[in-house]
């Protein structure tokens, strides 16, 4: 295939995935407001459009039209750079995530921007760089609440990254590969029975990943970086208009990415839970769309759980959070690695 064709097709894929991803981000916000509303026995947004479905559009327009205030005491270059870093890192990780069956057209993969041997490492890479967006925003704002929020956030993200990374090792050991496509293929054989979370025996790793991921994305019950009662707004207190929106989109984008990764690593990716019980459909169209359906359904369930947890659990205290990460999650993750290696070596 020629170079120009590769470039054009890649650009098309990037644009399509980006548009879908940003729409998903907007509607995750609506989903959260709706669900938290129902948990608190109220309706949530219901006025704009049928069932409030147009609310994200109006919210976006509102943020776009708001006055953009840059406080006078900030360190300008970094103050402007920080939201860009946060949003870029949030959008970057979607590039290595495969959404559907590996179908190719003229040698190009259709349901994935790029298939890398080291997809999982790239995801960890992007997460580790994402810390800078938050750390720098809090420091450059020249506001004590922002600084406290960003210090909390970065310390929390750096600490829980360890547990997060170690919880994935069991999955890698089982698949013997860091490629996300290979990891899904290992789980594809017997449907739900061969998913890593059940048949693969990685349920402990899944629970560690779940908790570490909540801390990584700074979401309840680990949302101390933006604890309103103590820190007014945390690291993005001094940001307004589109710059605030960038942090907001980065947070929800990270939520979706975490959901995608959990789906790929533990819940069998795009494969159907019934495995070979249902024969593969003959129709090419259904054959292409069924994996997409399963993938989106699994990510949706994960996001639902995310919001459910936020609606029902109280916030941790900061020392409890750190103690939990270092003294409980990390040792358990290491034990899981030892256990998985022993089982794989002996069987």
């Amino acid at each position: 295939m020629q170079l120009w064709m590769f470039v054009v097709l890649s650009l098309v894929k990037v644009v399509v995935v980006l548009v879908i991803f940003l729409t998903a981000v907007a509607y995750t916000v609506l989903l959260e407001r709706k669900l938290v509303g129902r948990i608190q026995n109220r309706w949530g947004p219901s006025r704009v459009g049928p069932f409030g479905l147009l609310q994200p559009l109006v919210d976006g327009l509102k943020l776009f039209l708001k006055e953009d205030i840059i406080p006078s005491g900030v360190y300008r270059p970094i103050y402007l750079l920080a939201p860009l870093i946060a949003l870029t890192c949030s959008l970057l990780s979607i590039a290595v995530i495969p959404f559907g069956a590996s179908m190719t057209w003229h040698g190009m993969r259709l349901f994935e921007i790029s298939d890398l041997n080291i997809g999982l490492l790239v995801l960890l890479c992007v997460t580790s760089i994402g810390v800078y967006g938050i750390a720098l925003s809090g420091w450059s704002s020249n506001n004590k609440y922002s600084l406290l929020g960003s210090l909390r956030a970065s310390a929390q993200m750096v600490s829980y990254e360890l547990a997060l990374g170690l919880s994935l090792v069991g999955v890698v050991l089982r698949a013997q590969s860091l490629s996300l496509t290979d990891i899904v293929k290992v789980q594809a054989v017997h449907g739900i029975a061969s998913w890593n979370i059940f048949g693969g025996g990685q349920i402990v790793a899944f629970l560690i990943y779940l908790m570490a991921a909540y801390a990584e994305t700074n979401r309840a019950p680990f949302d101390l970086p933006e604890a309103e009662t103590e820190l007014t707004g945390g690291y993005h207190t001094e940001y307004s208009s589109m710059k605030f929106a960038m942090f907001f989109m980065a947070e929800y984008g990270n939520m979706i990415t975490v959901g995608c990764v959990a789906t790929l690593l533990f819940l069998g990716g795009w494969t159907s839970p019934f495995g070979d019980l249902i024969p593969p459909p003959q129709n090419l169209f259904v054959h292409a769309l069924a994996p997409l359906f399963w993938f989106v359904a699994k990510v949706f369930c994960f996001l639902f759980l995310y919001i459910w947890v936020r609606g029902t659990l109280p916030r941790f205290r900061y020392d409890q959070l750190m103690g939990f990460g270092w003294k409980f999650l990390l040792p358990v993750a290491m034990l899981n690695i030892v256990g998985t290696s022993l089982v794989l070596a002996l069987l």
């Binding site: 580790s128 800078y132 720098l136 210090l151 970065s154």
Partner: peptide
């Protein structure tokens, strides 16, 4: 990250 922390 450690470096930037110290600077901050």
């Amino acid at each position: 990250v450690l470096f930037t922390f110290v600077v901050m």
